[in-house]
Design a protein around this nucleic acid. Structure first.
Lengths: 340, 340
DNA sequence: TTGAAAGCGCTAACAT
DNA sequence: ATGTTAGCGCTTTCAA
């Protein structure tokens, strides 16, 4: 059904010049007569000529597309990262192709193949929670695909990485709970094979130790980003004979599940149970009570990842991967008690 | 930096066959010797050959990519629609290229050009709130680009459209407010040039009329999807000498802004002010109180839009645009009063 | 069942 | 400053 669109050939014929002249004019090459150039541009505009980037990509062996794959984008975190990516991509003439793996390793593999087949110039990737075999990723890297990782980071993979100071954020969060009088602090944890889960857990543990609190393993629940699991874990905690008086959640969706569960049990936040999240999202502000949360520079994560990727794509030689750690801050709202 | 990837030519040389044979094997054409085919597939697998879809697209004049452009995707509505789109696209071998216009007409135009240049096979589009000139869209259609519209729909544009029964949803919402004892019902409205805004407004008006309520123009506030405006409009309503006792919001983000504003004024929901949203999102469930809202089949909207687009893309002849209207239902939660 | 060859629209030497 | 030409990797007639 697609009617044929004008090509440089059409323009060349009408203007009685060669296609290379047209091509030069369109890409404003230096060696061209301003008048011919104007004629070409005018006609191109008149015909509403749109260059066929498919052809250009094939010829240049470069698509000017960067791929982005995330586990999901219904929570606000990933969309906001993508926003940051698109910002720097568009500013430099790149397009962004977004895919999502739905936390499924199979889909991740399939999408990665599609990205490779589409010959994206590079990829910004947050792996799924079930990705424990990295051969498909390493294979893509062997083919020369530059990949920048963020959020879901594992030590086994090489490449540039953008992370936030999870350890410090977790430490501050738990310390704040301690300073506001909480005594039994539970942790709704993430997957331990990811640095994001491990570092936040370590921050939790070290904060307890720093204040001479005992470590109670039964207060550490692995929710691992699985939807619905935080709710069940919270219920288990609430049902304990001596239930905790505070929860530190590995991220905001987890915290929100906990919040709903606590309220369903007719307990009050923060008086019965104090609650801290780790901000994936601005929406932590409009639950009731608004969530005390560790805030991370989401937008900047995307921008930085894109910048790193573009540097690598355009690197003349071998590019040495960089790991960047961005700062986190604790924002105190109403889900934790007042300082004593 | 990109190392060259294997091509059908590499395979052909090694197997001492022609590239057309390799091509046939790879696309499992009917007329090929099973043994040659197996040899090709084995070698392809061994080399980790990934077809260059850029080249195939150029040759076939078809990219197997469908474009999606939305005004934003940080609220849950659009991501969920995209989920539905990706589902049917992936099932039929299409890839999805997502762009967002950030509610900016300029970006919309720019992105649309990029989509055309990338030669996407079709586009699923929700225009920005400031798009009041449609020439760029019509121009793309003239080039033969099939476009399916959803959510942000205007009468002036031709093409398949996926909508929900906004009128009925709004009518039910307002009727429910009336039946629960509300007497002064305000409307936080959307843009009137879009059917989404107009139909919801009409539902509001007709529900009032049907119950012999007077229409008070000062209770209709145009928030038009502009972030922050709902909050200010709500404040204006609350400051009125005889303030409304109920608000019907054009969508959930608008309702959430109103909710925050009402609570900041120390008024109670639903006793002082009842509140109904129009569901763009599942998150209406976890604000406090959970929002009574008109629910629409978000996922299905995406699926249907994709199906319509694919039908049009693969239509042998001229395709006659279809408009589909999906049903809405009122889900009663805690932001409205009990039935009397 | 296979091969030869043309060409999709563009870029980039190279030549003039 | 402009033209000629050879591909990029693939699909698809047409011929064998």
């Amino acid at each position: 059904m697609r009617s044929k669109q004008p090509t440089i050939w059409d323009i060349a014929i009408k203007l009685n010049v060669s296609i290379s002249t047209v091509s030069r004019a369109l890409r404003n090459a230096p060696d061209i007569n301003p008048e011919t150039k104007k004629a070409v541009l005018d006609l191109a505009h008149q015909l509403d000529y749109q260059p066929n980037t498919v052809a250009a990509s094939l010829r240049k062996n470069k698509t000017d597309i960067i791929g982005v794959m995330v586990p999901e984008f219904v929570h606000a975190y990933f969309p906001n990262v993508i926003l940051g990516i698109q910002e720097v991509a568009n500013a430099t003439g790149y397009k962004v192709m977004v895919m999502q793996s739905s936390e499924s390793l199979d889909i991740e593999k399939h999408n990665l193949q599609a990205m490779v087949s589409s010959r994206v110039d590079g990829l910004i990737l947050a792996i799924t929670r079930e990705t424990n075999d990295y051969e498909h990723i390493v294979a893509a890297q062997r083919k020369g695909l530059p990949i920048v990782f963020f959020n879901r980071i594992v030590d086994e993979l090489q490449g540039s990485k953008v992370m936030v100071d999870d350890y410090k954020g977790a430490f501050m969060a738990v310390q704040h709970l301690i300073q506001t009088g909480c005594r039994r602090i539970a942790h709704l944890a993430g997957p331990e094979n990811m640095t994001i889960g491990r570092n936040r857990l370590n921050g939790y543990l070290d904060a307890l130790k720093a204040h001479q609190f005992p470590i109670d393993e039964s207060l550490i629940m692995h929710c691992d980003f699985v939807e619905g699991r935080a709710r069940r874990c919270t219920q288990l905690l609430l049902d304990m004979p001596n239930r905790p008086d505070a929860l530190f959640a590995v991220n905001d969706p987890t915290a929100v599940e906990a919040l709903i569960c606590i309220q369903e049990n007719d307990l009050s936040i923060p008086n019965d149970i104090a609650l801290v999240g780790f901000s994936n999202a601005p929406h932590s502000t409009f639950v009731t009570p608004p969530l005390t949360s560790v805030v991370q520079p989401i937008h900047e994560i995307g921008q930085l990842a894109a910048q790193l990727l573009l540097r690598q794509i355009n690197a003349p030689q071998q590019f040495i991967p960089e790991t960047h750690v961005l700062d986190t801050t604790l924002v105190i709202r109403k889900s934790t008690r007042e300082l004593i």
